[in-house]
Amino acid sequence: MLKKSLISVAAVSAIFMAGAASADTADKRIALSNNYAGNSWRQAMLKSWDKVTGKAVADGIVKEAPAFTTAENQATEQAAQIQNLILQGYDAIVLNAASPTALNGAVKEACSAGVTVVSFDGVVTEPCAWRIAVDFAKMGEVQLDYLAKRMAGGANLLEIRGLAGVFVDDEIHKGIVAGVAKYPQFKIVGSVHGDWAQTVAQKNVAGILPSLPKVDAVVTQGGDGYGAAQAFKAANRPTPLIVMGNRHDELTWWKQQKDANKYETMSVSIAPGVSTLAFWVAQQILDGKPVPKDMIVPFLRIDQENLEQNLANTEPGGVANVEYLQADALKVIASAK
């Protein structure tokens, strides 16, 4: 059994070597290894992947591009999944990883077997893999830049953080702290963890609100803005400026407030369609193009002017999304050089 798989890995690697030389990806197979599917962002990410890769397969750009999701959001489980994908002979694995470091062993095995690994969103540190990373700290900082324009005289802020102990939460928080240091007229008067979920954010904001002075603005991490708005409403407090995170319920609420009382805010997050950007990058690498190992994903920022347009493009329960084209991937690759 083991011998057989080794032979097939060797055979596939040989085919891969031959394929790379001809600079054509029509016979290439790219797999998506995904660690979690239990929220609207991930659902949209998988949907975008299906849509874009389905078209790419129909157009004969790649042979196939299935998506695989692990059930338990565990690094060990995803490592086993990657090993399976290696044995199944995929040419490239596009990876949203459960952990930045715990999958490095499996990723290294993939590289040694000649499989191209492109990680995105949840990136891995293993040097042989490509990384399409999000500048999360910047996501925190732009919120303060925006607030500094809107509230030049300073304001009391409530910070809603994400899931404690996760890298993304620390990074966005760092950006927010850096922003507050840059504009000392702002003061964070309270901080709660919302776990990027509306219900958790609502509960924890409702708990801390009674003990807080007037809150002028809420800085967030996405997936928590609507819950915060509900908590302020339930406490009969004036609605502060809440930075949104591109979710459909958040944008819908914003639109209602905008129509009712000219409410103004901004919204920023990463488009779930970043999976399709990673797909095109993997395709470029398989095509033999030189691609730098580290790239940065562009944000999807929504402002007062383009709210309606973005809301119309967001499906109920989903997240504002952009599906990337091959040309976008070339742009991201070029800007990383």
């Binding site: 239990g38 929220n39 609207s40 659902q43 776990d195 979920a197 509306q198 219900t199 958790v200 609502q202 609507y226 819950g227 509900q230 319920d249």
Partner: peptide
């Protein structure tokens, strides 16, 4: 809970 928090979401039972 779905009525209370303005709609259902997939992760609302997690905690």
């Amino acid at each position: 809970l779905a009525g209370f928090s303005g709609g259902s979401s997939l992760d609302m039972g997690m905690e």
